[in-house]
Nucleic acid binder design. Structure first.
Lengths: 153, 153
DNA sequence: ACTGAAATAAGTACTCC
DNA sequence: GGAGTACTTATTTCAGT
């Protein structure tokens, strides 16, 4: 699954993660190469799935999404049918930004972005009405210390 | 802090979040407008900070980052000096993708992406050697069910 | 694989409505 | 505030090394 990447590829990825709006010329200059090889490598990395997509990152506060919760979920149900329904709900709800199935004591963790605590409660009520959940702990974020999409390459 | 956005602004944000590589013409067509207003609105939203930046999203697996941990941290220290050092450490470490200060029982939550469990342990040892921490629980992700940068607009 | 240049397409700015 | 258009700049392709 891990792609073969050389130093030049990695330098290009650093630049694209920092700012995907830079022109090819600019990226080429920064990584010490020229347009064509940079372009060919970007194309190859897109084909290989190393570069998934290019997106605009928005400021949650500006959109009025001022509350962020991490939700720890324990469940008693582990049947295929229950899980399918649960996962479907998570994928469909736009306020769920992340969802992971965990090893150990806690079964799932979610990251949920909403307008305020009331909106979280609405989400929570909807979630537990759709699927049976044994135990839920919501952790309220007071301060986003760091949030980056930049992976170390 | 919340910006005033109309329907057209929101439609543009939907498109930019879905795929920031689309041309202005394409976005204009999809949102039912023309180049000039779309361009002016994008520029305005960048100035206002609604659009933070544009970035390439990479596939963690392709980069060999196969392990993801959520780290719950309790601390006995709440002095300004300790906190400054702790936050500095988190911001400097590229494997820490997210860090939030929480309300309640648990003080901090981190999202950490590393190559494997051994790499996590290296990170953990480095962290606790730099700052005094009362209690740490690491939750290992078995499966990334959902991970999106798309905010509901 | 990289260089350089040519062809195509997109971004930017201006005028008019 | 939006449409149309002219101008500038970037992306993409291709021949040559």
């Amino acid at each position: 699954m891990a792609a073969q990447l050389d130093d030049l590829d990695r330098k290009i990825l650093v630049e694209l993660q920092a700012d995907a709006e830079q022109s090819l010329d600019e990226i080429a200059r920064k990584v010490g190469s020229s347009k064509t090889p940079v372009w060919n490598r970007i194309r190859r990395m897109k084909e290989q799935g190393v570069i998934t997509r290019q997106t605009a990152i928005l400021d949650a506060e500006s959109l009025g999404l001022e509350a962020c919760f991490f939700v720890l979920i324990r469940t008693s149900e582990h049947e295929a049918d229950w899980q399918r329904k649960f996962l479907k709900t998570l994928r469909e709800r736009p306020e769920v930004l992340e969802a992971h199935r965990l090893a150990g004591d806690i079964d799932y963790i979610l990251k949920v972005r909403v307008k305020n605590a009331r909106a979280y409660d609405t989400f929570y009520q909807a979630l537990i009405s759709e699927v049976k959940i044994y135990n839920v702990t919501a952790l309220l974020s007071m301060e986003e210390i760091k949030a980056t999409t930049v992976l170390p390459v």
